[in-house]
């Protein structure tokens, strides 16, 4: 397994947001964690990336225990996150945002080639490469955020609530882009989403999170068919 998380607990001021969650992501997989608002999805992702401390459990990535590693060292091992609300560097240009994503990897990757590939994938970023990131629309910022993570050639891409605040039409585009990245470019993706149906449709496997615990897990198709999931999360 590329990522295996066991018994992960995250607490804020003594209150547990995530209680003993275990899951794994294999190489080449696209896995979703779905759940309602406040179920602890974002906490799980931030703990995996090392942006918040975990109060218990073990996170193993690419054969190493990274539980106590600061986030910038996890990033160096090619784990990247597309955070909630994109979080682009507002006062940097689009191109500079992408360069930050490639920080410390100048020798490992062909920067020019990578940029061209990304511009092919997200043409709007090339058009706006000299513009400050804060002048981009919400959807463009999401694209920049994905591109900034992809430039590093990540082994694992963590994607946090990418559909949040996007127009329905854009949501479709972004999910299609994620599916392409996984199926055609072999990038392993862990997706955390409130939009359960859209994310399960492109996933191999899924986990259903309820109040900080895993309530259900299984193949994505099976979850979509599951009566309980349909009622609670898919609204069908």
């Amino acid at each position: 397994m590329l990522l295996s998380v066991s018994d992960l607990t995250v607490a804020y001021a003594g209150v547990e947001a995530v209680s003993g969650v275990s899951f794994s992501v294999g190489e080449g997989e696209l896995v979703s964690i779905i759940g309602a608002n406040g179920a602890g999805k974002t906490s799980i992702l931030n703990a995996v990336m090392g942006l918040i401390p975990s109060s218990g459990g073990r996170i193993e990535f690419d054969g190493t225990n990274v539980t106590r590693l600061p986030s910038h060292l996890r990033a160096r091992r090619r784990m990247r996150i597309v955070p909630e609300r994109a979080r682009v560097f507002a006062h940097l240009t689009v191109r500079e945002n992408l360069l930050v994503g490639a920080y410390g990897l100048r020798k490992a990757i062909d920067l020019q080639k990578k940029l061209e590939w990304l511009y092919g994938f997200f043409p709007v970023l090339e058009e706006r490469s000299a513009q400050l990131a804060r002048t981009l629309s919400g959807g463009e910022q999401q694209q920049l955020s994905i591109a900034r993570a992809l430039i590093s050639d990540p082994k694992l891409l963590l994607v946090d609530e990418i559909s949040m605040g996007l127009m329905p039409k854009l949501v479709e585009t972004v999910f299609e882009a994620l599916r392409d990245l996984n199926r055609e470019h072999g990038i392993t993706i862990l997706l955390v989403e409130q939009n359960a149906l859209a994310s399960l449709r492109i996933s191999n496997r899924g986990y259903v999170l309820e109040a900080g615990r895993i309530a259900l897990e299984g193949n994505a198709d099976a979850l979509v068919r599951d009566a309980g999931v349909r009622e609670a999360y898919l609204g069908i």
């Binding site: 990033a75 560097f89 990897l105």
Partner: peptide, 24 residues
């Protein structure tokens, strides 16, 4: 320089910068 870019990224969003491999 790359060092300057790292600093400006931290100024803009420290958490996001650290998740790109930049040591704050």
């Amino acid at each position: 320089s790359w060092a300057g870019l790292g600093c400006r990224a931290i100024a803009s969003d420290e958490t996001a910068a650290s998740s790109m491999g930049i040591s704050p």
